[in-house]
């Protein structure tokens, strides 16, 4: 049993203090990081509630419930930022990545505290797989939002359509790593491979945004 609220407080207080002394892009990234951690806590509450409601065990919950709850919860602060602050394309993508990083960091902290961090190999796998997976999902989601906003097709249908891709990618990862063996190794590699595949198109897009 861990007290995740206490862990969140402990990590977020220095970050909040840092946010006071920073300005501009650094503060924005810190705020997104903090929002990501808070989102992680809230989505764990929702996932836990739905797991109890459905009468599932933790393994089944990780495959069937958590991906949907977590991706929807991550989308909400992103949409809030998009509608309230109307950021530029580059800023939105950076915010989304920081949000994903905050989410992954807090999830990893809680996971390692709950299960132990004696094995270096396990912690590395955890960091490279789950950590990267959340960032990839958020990056893909932000790119989709940027596209639908740019082409003026920002509708519920397009947002839900784009969200569904993040949900199924996340669920696929959770499903693969839920069973030990070769499938788990495929699962661990999946986020890194996707991140590498995303890197070049993202770099091109970033250059295009800078020029425009």
């Amino acid at each position: 049993m861990i007290y995740s609220e206490n862990i969140l407080l402990c990590i977020s207080i220095p970050l909040l203090l840092t946010a006071v002394y920073t300005r501009g892009a650094s503060r924005r990234s810190l705020a997104a990081f903090l929002a990501g951690m808070l989102t992680c806590l809230l989505s764990s509450y929702i996932s836990g509630y739905l797991t109890l409601l459905a009468g599932m065990d933790l393994n089944a919950s990780a495959v069937y419930i958590s991906p949907t709850a977590e991706e929807i919860m991550k989308l909400l602060p992103l949409l809030f930022y998009l509608f309230v602050y109307r950021p530029g394309e580059m800023t939105l993508a950076t915010f989304a990545i920081s949000l994903g990083a905050g989410f992954a960091t807090f999830e990893n902290c809680c996971y390692l505290l709950a299960t132990g961090s004696e094995s270096l190999a396990f912690t590395l796998i955890r960091g490279l797989a789950v950590g990267v997976m959340h960032i990839v999902c958020m990056l893909a989601m932000s790119l989709s939002l940027i596209m639908v906003r740019r082409y003026r097709v920002f509708t519920l249908a397009t947002v839900v359509g784009c969200l569904s891709q993040a949900v199924v990618f996340h669920a696929l990862y959770n499903l693969l790593v839920s069973v030990p063996g070769p499938s788990a190794y495929v699962g661990y590699v999946l986020p890194i491979v996707t991140a590498v595949a995303f890197y070049w198109p993202y770099r091109k897009l970033r250059q295009a945004w800078r020029q425009s």
């Binding site: 949907t68 249908a157 397009t158 839900v160 359509g161 569904s164 199924v168 669920a171």
Partner: peptide, 16 residues
């Protein structure tokens, strides 16, 4: 589960 949500998303993207 997720594959159903993906199917719903697919219809919405096709409509768009």
């Amino acid at each position: 589960a997720a594959n159903d949500i993906a199917d719903f998303g697919m219809f919405l993207l096709m409509s768009t």
